[in-house]
């Protein structure tokens, strides 16, 4: 009996490791920023002549959403953001990544603009500072400027309702 138990045990161990491996999403690279101070932000804005800096957002719970008009998944994500912006007063900042102003404005005109502010990262330098590698990406930043959560890929209803909404209300009650 015991001589069958050992191979069976090894098999179960191996199978469970492989099952875990299959269910991991290799795109979800853990962000080194979670729990740390967010990288600085100092960029021109899309619709205004002035700039947007990290200091403007001090003391607020805010969301940074990285998007581009060339990004297909951003299109899928956009209705979710529109709906969220309409029902919540959280500061939603857009980071327009490696795009042109004309394309970005046209995109927002046809799909709607959920953002309070839009920072323009023309050459992608700020994207590198923030460790962006797969647009769209979304960061949640607390009042002290610490990154609390990062989502890679489009936000869907599930992520919004299960992760982002509860997190925002928790952070907003925290002083």
């Amino acid at each position: 009996m015991t001589r069958y138990l050992l191979p069976l045990g090894i098999f179960i161990l191996l199978a469970s490791f492989l099952a875990i491996g299959l269910n991991l999403d290799p795109r979800e690279v853990p962000s080194p920023f979670v729990g740390k101070q967010a990288p600085p932000l100092d960029l021109p804005r899309l619709y205004n002549a002035d700039r947007i800096t990290s200091n403007d957002l001090k003391g607020k719970v805010w969301i940074l959403n990285v998007w581009a008009s060339w990004c297909v998944s951003c299109r899928a994500e956009h209705p979710v953001l529109n709906e969220y912006a309409a029902t919540s007063d959280v500061t939603l900042v857009g980071l327009n990544y490696k795009d042109t102003d004309v394309d970005a404005k046209r995109w927002l005109a046809s799909l709607g603009n959920p953002y309070h502010l839009i920072a323009v990262d023309r050459n992608g330098d700020t994207g590198i500072e923030w460790g962006v590698y797969g647009v769209p990406e979304t960061f949640v930043i607390d009042r002290n400027g610490v990154v609390i959560y990062k989502h890679i890929g489009p936000i869907d209803e599930g992520v919004l309702n299960d992760k982002i909404k509860p997190l925002i209300s928790e952070l907003e009650t925290r002083s």
Binding site: V29, P30, S31, P32, E129
Partner: peptide, 8 residues
């Protein structure tokens, strides 16, 4: 690179 993208 590691500071921004992690050890990956």
């Amino acid at each position: 690179m590691v500071d921004r993208y992690g050890e990956f």
